[in-house]
């Protein structure tokens, strides 16, 4: 079994929000996009993997090892990037690097310096004087300079312009040239994943909506367009989420085959984007 990350029946209850029974896994050599609207539980899940918060129930295995029992071994092999920098901003890039590097047995200064050059980061610049994008690049350089096998990123692209976002995605794809590595990448900007992700896990309101390879998901799901006259109480139930206009409707189905049988040629079925899947699902659960 070559799962680099495996999560089974993960639960965490905060009172006002709960993560309910999340399960998914990531194989070596792939990028998994972890999507969901703000407040879906993405950061909570990532913090649970990093053991920053304590799970109530379930299992988390990284490299086949329990993330709490083998905390040090597991973290030695994880690179992390969070949505905010959390570094000591009075320090320069080099000073901060020296602090982090000491914690990793496998830290490699030559890799770090290579990324600094590539990213145009000056080592003697204070972190507080970096732009948001530059801070993110520094975080990324710090995360991938100790030969980490699993890179975990929580919203690394939020608040960044498309050029920055593309650069980061390029780096991730480069990293995955090494087939022993894997990336878990949370975002609410799904267009980033249309290009980069191999697998998708989608959560909403603390619950798992779907998980699987991007291709299989896009094949199974479809955006259905048709006239109002096709909708009745029974046919409405076929859809996960719907938008109605005066003329007709657009809706998401999780079973293209079934819809095709049901409506035949009277509807148009289009390939959905990840954004379609997310938007319609969230809308559907709001109406339900």
């Amino acid at each position: 079994m070559d799962n680099i990350l495996e999560i089974r029946n993960l639960k965490k209850d905060f009172g006002d929000f709960a993560l309910k029974d999340i399960s998914f896994s990531l194989e070596k050599g792939y990028i998994m996009g972890f999507i969901g609207p703000n407040g879906a539980g993405k950061s909570t899940t990532i913090k649970l993997i990093m053991n920053l918060i304590r799970r109530d129930a379930g299992e988390i295995e990284v490299f086949g090892l329990d993330n709490r029992e083998h905390e040090l071994t597991v973290k030695e092999r994880i690179g992390f990037v969070y949505d905010e920098s959390h570094y000591y901003e009075e320090l320069t890039i080099n000073e901060m690097k020296r602090i982090i590097a000491r914690f990793y047995k496998q830290w490699d200064d030559s890799i770090f310096n290579k990324y600094l050059r590539e990213f145009g980061l000056q080592p003697d610049k204070k972190i507080k004087n970096l732009s948001k994008g530059m801070k993110m690049k520094f975080s990324l350089a710090a995360a991938i300079s100790h030969n980490a096998e699993l890179i975990i990123m929580d919203e690394p692209t939020s608040g960044l312009d498309p050029i920055f976002r593309n650069e980061i995605l390029d780096i991730l794809r480069d990293l995955l040239q090494d087939e022993n590595k894997g990336v878990l990448f949370s975002t609410h900007i799904t267009t980033d994943l249309d290009k980069a992700a191999d697998y998708i896990t989608f959560i909403h309101n603390g619950e798992l909506v779907l998980t699987g390879s991007k291709e299989s998901i896009i094949e199974k799901y479809g955006v259905v367009k048709g006239g109002q006259e096709l909708l009745d109480r029974d046919t409405r139930k076929e859809f996960l989420g719907m938008r109605e206009t005066g003329f007709g409707f657009e809706a998401l189905t999780g079973n293209v085959e079934r819809v095709r049988k049901l409506f035949g040629g009277s509807v148009i079925i289009e390939r959905p984007s990840l954004e379609d899947i997310m938007l319609y699902t969230v809308r559907g659960s709001a109406n339900a």
Binding site: M50, N51, L52, L72, K75, I78, F80, H86, F103, Y104
Partner: peptide, 8 residues
């Protein structure tokens, strides 16, 4: 958050 994400 950073400190507790390191192998510590």
């Amino acid at each position: 958050i950073i400190v507790n994400s390191l192998p510590v």
